[in-house]
Computed example of a mutant assay.
Amino acid sequence: MQEPGGRLGIELRITPEARRCEIHSTRPVTASQVFIGRTPAETARVLPRLYSICGQAQACACTTALEHALGHTAPTEIRADRAAAVASETRREHLWRILIDWPAALDEPADHLTLARVHGLTRTLLAALAPDADLFIPGARPTATDQRVLAETRDALDTLLEARLFGMPPAHWLTRIDTPERLADWAASGVSQAARLLQRVIVEDLAGLGASTVAPLPALDDRALADLLPRLADPGFLTAPTWDGAPRETTPVTRQHHQPLVRALGTGLLARLVALLVEVADPPLLASRPSGALDDGLGVGRAAAARGMLTHLVQLDARGHIADYCILAPTEWNFHPRGALALALEALGPAPEAELRRRAGLLIAALDPCVAFDLTLSTAGPSEVPSCA
């Protein structure tokens, strides 16, 4: 039976002359079309339930797009609370990878207990930000949030991260670990599983593995995004979007490239892992506000989702119901057949097949497709590809 969220098939074909990566997706990129004919209020309530991952980001982008199409601008307080909710979710999503997937790369047990505490604290935060559950409904009005609960919960989460991840308060880690040399010292301390994974990446000279040659997705204004709507009628474009005729990347490493440490590390494996730690220490905030009116009934909404920029585009009909609805998700940008992952896998150096599989798995996990995937390595010739050594 096909999985509701779809699946990625990633095949790396290896010959003595070259490597070729092929990526096939069964993700339901046109699922949002089911909302055609529905009202904005109904759409805002139902759409996030279709997405088990990044539901807060989906809700934020959805509601912002609908408000834009309706000619509404949410109050500053509402936009700030929505951004905080998405940031809390992004932090939780990153911690899932750091506490579950990263230990597996070390052959160590996952830290399920810490992750369970993170989930509990995130639920408390989200409940405090939206006490009446209407935060992501178009036209939402500010409500009295319990600032004491918010402050106490954030403090508890920071204390947990200090003990189980950073070895110091997250804010201190962000300011102190600001050069590759200081990062290497922190990694060598072995203070956490995350530090030990970074140490292994550094020692095994994998820091630059899979460095991206794909340009970042630029900061597009609402008009530029709205102009994409006719092209989004093509499922082929939705599955493999391009900008200016080329694949683009939108990931934590492109989002955090302004950070001196991330910028100094480049765009390889180490930079990607560090970008997640940076966003756990200081989750990205995007208080999405449309830049101005578009055509009647046309709206754009964005959210800083865990895996990159999430964009919703909506067109309302004369009755104010949904006439068209499209979603551009970061997975489609980053796992484009000729995108960041494909080119990174094709650039892997010679190594035994088992090592190639391990390195490919690290790169896929670092880009995080948000759905299950199958990785296949096919070789022309011996089962091992000779190492340069």
Rank of each mutant, 00 (worst) to 15 (best):
E93R: 07
H312T: 02
L121S: 04
A366V: 13
L367K: 04
R359Y: 12
R359K: 14
G37N: 01
D368Q: 02
D368S: 07
T39V: 01
S212G: 01
L363N: 11
A65E: 06
E332N: 15
P230G: 02
E384A: 14
F166M: 09
H257T: 07
A151Y: 02
A127M: 09
C388I: 14
V274S: 01
A57K: 00
D244A: 14
G266A: 03
A110C: 07
L150K: 07
L238E: 05
I36M: 10
F237I: 04
A233Q: 15
A340M: 04
L197T: 01
R92G: 07
G5C: 13
G301F: 04
E152A: 13
V385E: 06
A224H: 11
E355K: 10
H257A: 15
S387V: 13
V385D: 00
G71Q: 06
S192W: 09
A366C: 10
T179M: 08
G308H: 11
A184G: 00
A151M: 06
L115N: 07
R289C: 10
N334I: 13
G308L: 11
A323M: 05
A163D: 11
R302G: 01
E204A: 13
I177T: 09
G55T: 07
A84Y: 01
R176M: 02
E384W: 12
S52F: 03
E162S: 12
G299F: 04
T114W: 02
E249Q: 10
G292Y: 07
L220F: 05
R19S: 07
L356E: 10
A380Y: 14
T26Q: 03
P330F: 08
T73I: 15
T143E: 08
P216Q: 13
I364Q: 04
A156T: 13
D132I: 03
S291F: 05
A84C: 08
I202D: 03
I137C: 13
G9P: 00
P16N: 05
S88M: 04
V86L: 06
D132C: 06
L363C: 11
D295A: 15
A240I: 09
W333F: 15
E204Q: 15
I53V: 15
P352A: 10
A105C: 14
A188F: 04
L269Q: 02
P218C: 03
A224K: 12
